[in-house]
């Protein structure tokens, strides 16, 4: 059971809550103790918009334990509007083929169960095709 670990980072997981560096203004995700851009101390909370584009992607046909239920699933490097890149599953693709450059937006989904169906449900960010382009 890993609930303390998932609980600790719930804000960033649920809603892409990161940081903005008070020294160099860099937007940081995930939040860190030290700004990767200027090396200053980083701790000012920043809410990312959740908008981004697919920077690269893959489709997983084998999954690590805990993720088999969703196979096959796409994982992407998503470049956020504010700069950072995050690794995230793509969801709700429907019949849409994934392409590099495709606009996506963050949604909060079930990532996995911690342990079996008795464990906590882990929720976190995924990305889907931006609604405007999905129509």
């Amino acid at each position: 059971m890993e609930n303390p670990r998932h609980w600790r980072i719930r804000k960033q997981r649920y809603a892409l809550v990161g940081e903005v560096c008070p020294h160099c203004e860099a937007k940081i995700f995930p939040p860190r103790d030290v700004c990767p851009n200027c090396g200053g101390e980083a701790k000012t909370q920043f809410n990312f918009s959740g908008k981004g584009t697919v920077f690269s992607f893959t489709v997983m046909n084998d999954a690590p334990a805990g993720y088999e239920k969703n196979l096959p699933y796409a994982v992407a490097l998503v470049k956020l509007e504010e700069g950072p890149i995050v690794t995230a599953q793509l969801t709700d693709l429907g019949d849409q083929p994934v392409q590099i450059g495709m606009p996506v937006e963050m949604v909060t989904r079930r990532i996995r169960d911690d342990g079996d169906e008795k464990g906590i449900i882990v929720y976190g960010y995924k990305f889907r095709p931006a609604m405007s382009s999905a129509q």
Partner: peptide, 26 residues
Amino acid sequence: TDYDYELAQGLSLTGQAGLVMQLYLH
């Protein structure tokens, strides 16, 4: 991989290689 931010999203070493290769081909 990064347990909190990569594996948490269902990524594996093979998945990482997929991301890199896709980018390279593109």
